[in-house]
Computed example of a mutant assay.
Amino acid sequence: MSRRTTLAAALTLTAALVLAGCGGADGAPQLKVEGPYMPRPVDQNMAGAYFTVKNSGDTADKLTSVTSDLSKDITLHKTAGTKMEQVNSLAIPAGGELRLSRGGNHLMFMGLKKKPAEGDEVAIELHFATAGPIKVTVPVKALTYAPKK
């Protein structure tokens, strides 16, 4: 085998492994997080966070937990009508999205280690039933911030 052929084979194998590790394999969830934000918390007791997880893959997945240095107690919540309830996971349909927003599904951070100020950034890591974890930087916005739709 020539040196050029060996190099081409090595590059092809490397590219295939990278794509497989990124959820590029057929049928796997392919997740992307868009529009994260946290309204500036009023006090150090709790905060909420919102974003959209888009799944361009052929397989559904679930957001199962969130970790962050900001709080050890981060829970997933869904809102049905006027009632908010804690859930163990939030579904992300194949070819669809999970939208976390005020008045809907959201994250709750309880017992903050510090109160983030407007302009700060909060690092979180999202954990899923199938896909690997995703690290997200969440900007802290004004208390009354509302994203454009």
Rank of each mutant, 00 (worst) to 15 (best):
R40W: 13
V53M: 02
G96P: 04
H77G: 04
S2V: 07
A49N: 04
P39Q: 14
K148W: 06
G81R: 08
V140L: 01
G21Y: 11
M84Y: 11
G103Y: 12
P93G: 04
G35D: 06
A142H: 03
P93C: 10
L126Y: 04
F128G: 04
G57D: 05
K113N: 14
G48T: 07
D120T: 06
L63F: 01
G48C: 02
E34F: 06
T6A: 15
A146C: 06
E121N: 06
L98E: 09
G81I: 09
N88L: 12
A123N: 02
T64C: 05
P41D: 12
H106R: 11
Y50C: 05
D26M: 15
G132M: 10
T79I: 02
T59I: 07
F128L: 08
N45C: 06
Y37P: 08
V42A: 09
T79Q: 11
T52A: 09
E34P: 04
A117N: 14
T59D: 10
G96V: 04
A47P: 04
I74Q: 00
C22E: 15
D120E: 09
E121V: 03
Y50M: 08
S2H: 03
A60C: 07
L143M: 06
H106Y: 15
D69E: 10
L76A: 02
R4A: 06
M38V: 09
T130K: 10
A129V: 05
S101K: 14
P36M: 10
A15L: 08
K149G: 09
K83V: 12
A146G: 10
K148G: 03
G48V: 07
V138M: 01
G48W: 04
G27Y: 15
Y145Q: 03
A117K: 14
E121P: 00
P139N: 04
N105W: 08
V122F: 05
V53D: 02
K114Q: 14
P133M: 02
G111Y: 14
V87I: 15
S68N: 15
H127W: 05
G24Q: 13
G35E: 03
L17I: 02
F128W: 11
A142G: 02
A146I: 09
E85F: 06
L31V: 08
Y37M: 05
T14R: 11
G24V: 14
